[in-house]
């Protein structure tokens, strides 16, 4: 039933998998090991959940976490064993087929975004992110890049901040004061 993209086996067909059924892709074994270790760690943690007001029986807050992490651990063990038995796919490399430089760069960009979001604020962080990302991917002039990214950012900001009043971290931009200024202006114009 597996549907495989002939070029890259990358699972773009749907939300379901893009792995190879009879070969081990680069890094797959490591990923399976990582999942097993995570499962075991969570299982230990689940076992440590204490019911503050009663016994740790079938109806305690521990029951389901222990059951589900144990299932994870068993499934991860089977997956690891199966993966280890598969022959390696020699035609692929990790750096080219799994995590190419471009994807890695974006993971880095997102990590940077997450770090800067709170101290610097939503607007400057997003402006930098969009500009860098679009410039890198589209390789057009800076004027075009800035126009597109700032325009899009403004649209998103208007929808989320003004219409839906989602208050993203303001950081160094005095957003509330700016909005108040426009509000006063609008009121002044009406009055």
């Amino acid at each position: 039933m597996e549907r495989i993209d002939p070029e890259h086996h990358d699972g773009t067909s749907d939300a379901t998998p893009g792995g190879e059924p009879d070969r081990r892709r680069p890094g797959e074994l490591g990923f399976a090991a990582f999942l097993l270790l995570t499962s075991l760690f969570l299982l230990v943690s689940a076992w440590g959940i204490e019911n503050p007001f009663g016994p740790n029986g079938l109806s305690s807050p521990r029951a389901l976490p222990v059951a589900t992490t144990a299932t994870m651990a068993v499934a991860a063990t089977i997956i690891l064993a199966r993966t280890a038995r598969l022959p390696r796919d020699a035609s692929e490399t990790f750096a080219r087929d799994i995590l190419p430089a471009r994807a890695l760069l974006f993971v880095g960009l997102l990590a940077g975004y997450a770090l800067l979001l709170r101290p610097v604020g939503f607007l400057p962080t997003s402006a930098i992110f969009l500009a860098v990302a679009i410039r890198y991917l589209e390789r057009r002039s800076w004027g075009w890049t800035l126009a597109v990214s700032l325009g899009a950012l403004l649209a998103i900001w208007l929808v989320f901040r003004i219409v839906f009043t989602v208050l993203m971290p303001a950081g160094i931009v005095p957003e509330a004061e700016i909005i108040q200024f426009f509000r006063a202006l609008a009121k002044g114009a009406v009055g």
């Binding site: 509330a176 004061e177 909005i179 108040q180 200024f181 006063a184």
Partner: peptide, 11 residues
């Protein structure tokens, strides 16, 4: 706005 500067001066 600066002259009036009294609470609340923003949302």
């Amino acid at each position: 706005t600066a002259a009036v500067a009294e609470y609340p001066e923003k949302e």
